[in-house]
Structures are given as C-alpha cells and as structure tokens.
C-alpha cells in the first residue's frame, strides 16, 4: 500500500520543491516507485525541476480533482526522461491557469482527495510513496493536506521566524497525533558541523530530525535546471538526501 508523505514548511523558500524532487529520485534509485504531487498551487515549481513542459501538462491535477479527467490521464511517467536505471518517478502537476488555481483554492481539497489519490496511485501504478509538495504556511488548507497524509515532513531553516513557526506547527500536529519528522535545510555550514544541532532541534520541537542539509551555493547556481543529485551524484548534498531517503525506507512504509 502506498504511503502519503506531505512535505511542508511554515515559510516559503525553505527548499520544499527541490527536496521533494531530489528525495523522490533518490528513493527511486533504491528501486522504489514514487509519485510526486505538486500542491504548491500558488507557486508550482516541481515541473521546472523535472523539466516538464506545459505541452506535457495538457490535463492537470485540477481536472482530476473536479472529475474531468482520470488519474491515468494526468500522471506523467518521468522515469525514462530522467534516465533512471531503476525505480519509477511519476509526476502529477497542478494547473498554472489563474482561474483554475482560484477555483481549487476556493473549493479546497478534501480529506477524501488525499486518501483516494494515494490509494489509486498504489492500485494503478504500484507506487510505494506519494510525496505531496504542499503550499507553505500554517493555514487550514495546508494543514488539511498534512493531516490527510500518512506522514508529515517539515522543512525548516535555522532562522528565528522559521523556528518559531515550525514550533507552533509541530504543536498543532501533536494535537492530532500526527507522525512528523523535520529536515533542517540550508543550514549555515558552521552550524551544520555541530553534532548537537539534531538533538537540540528535536528536543525543542518534540519531533525527530531526520536530516541536516547545509547551505550549498551550488544548489542555487544549479537554478532548478533538472534534478541536482542526478547531475552531481558525489556531491555532499546528494549524500545528505541519501541519508533522508534511507531513513524513509527503513522507517516509513
């Protein structure tokens, strides 16, 4: 049965889409079948990283949500395009048309959507993991996405505003008994060297930290042109993502 993982953050710019794309590919390199769903409706970015053109997205997630298309019509298999030797990567992109975004935001996602899409991706494609790249913030829609998934993975940067917001988010999720994990991203290199950082953040948030990813200027220079770990398999970033993927494989699903 497929496991739904919601990747979210309190603030924007924490690297959710970059992490989603790279983590999904890493899981695929371990032989897993992974579907990635772009739910960052107001600023979708996964398709850019995966280099999916608008012509490949004639039918989108929005059509599926409103019953105008079947799941099979909107799923894009990127396995060959990415040149993956094993595993599979599927992509479900949201519409970039303003009226479609507005309609979806107004009518909202349902708990049923997350349950159904995860179940159907498991049935139709034998998917192991469904990763939802959500909209940032501590609002009703994002929390609905997180609470309707099996597991929550919060991305956090080490600045005060983000730490405070993530702390509050963790408190809210605890009230719902949600299984949650934290990945620290874009950590200043001197801070990333401190081994205590993991336990200190875990202690503060009451949530296990499953990854510490330092800030690498190479990621910025890459400018979302393709999946970084495929182009730089020996880079330190790739090794950090590998660590998170291994945790997921060994502990989730």
């Amino acid at each position: 049965m497929a496991v739904g993982i919601a990747i979210h953050s309190y603030r924007g710019g924490t690297g959710k889409s970059t992490t989603t794309a790279n983590l999904a590919v890493m899981l695929a390199l371990y032989g897993k079948k992974v579907a990635t769903v772009d739910l960052d409706l107001t600023s979708p970015g996964l398709h850019v990283i995966y280099q999916v053109s608008q012509s490949m997205m004639k039918v989108t997630l929005n059509d599926y949500v409103f019953g105008r298309a079947a799941l099979e019509d909107i799923v894009i298999d990127l396995t060959n395009q990415l040149g993956l030797p094993k595993g599979r990567i599927y992509f479900l992109g949201a519409s970039m048309k303003p009226e479609e975004i507005a309609k979806l935001l107004k009518e909202g996602y349902s708990e049923q959507f997350f349950r159904e899409v995860t179940k159907q991706l498991g049935e139709a494609y034998g998917v192991d993991y469904v990763i939802f790249d959500t909209h940032p913030g501590l609002n009703e829609d994002t929390l609905l996405a997180v609470l309707s998934s099996d597991v929550s993975m919060m991305m956090m940067r080490m600045d005060k505003q983000d730490i405070t917001g993530t702390y509050v988010t963790a408190q809210v999720l605890r009230k719902f008994n949600k299984t949650s994990y934290v990945v620290l991203n874009m950590v200043p290199p001197n801070m990333a060297k401190a081994v205590e950082i993991r336990s200190e953040v875990s202690k503060l948030l009451g949530v296990p930290v499953i990854g510490v990813v330092p800030f690498y200027p190479e990621i910025l220079q890459h400018r979302s042109r393709g999946v970084f770990i495929l182009k730089h398999p020996k880079h330190q970033y790739t090794l950090r993502i590998k660590e998170v993927a291994e945790f997921i494989i060994n502990n989730i699903g």
């Binding site: 019953g67 019509d73 349902s110 708990e111 049923q112 159907q120 609470l147 809210v172 719902f176």
Partner: peptide
C-alpha cells in the same frame, strides 16, 4: 498498470468538514 481508469468521486464529505472544524479550533 491496470486497464481500469481511476476517477476521483466527489461525494458529500463530512470527514473533511469535521477535520476543517478541528483544524480551526486547534489553530485558535
């Protein structure tokens, strides 16, 4: 892949309404 196509059926979803209410209360 199975040959049967999968659609999302939108039904009256009381679970979502209940979850949204709980989220609102918890946030407050």
């Amino acid at each position: 892949m199975t040959s049967r196509k999968h659609y999302l059926t939108r039904t009256r979803d009381s679970r979502t309404q209940e979850l949204r209410r709980k989220i609102s209360d918890t946030l407050l």
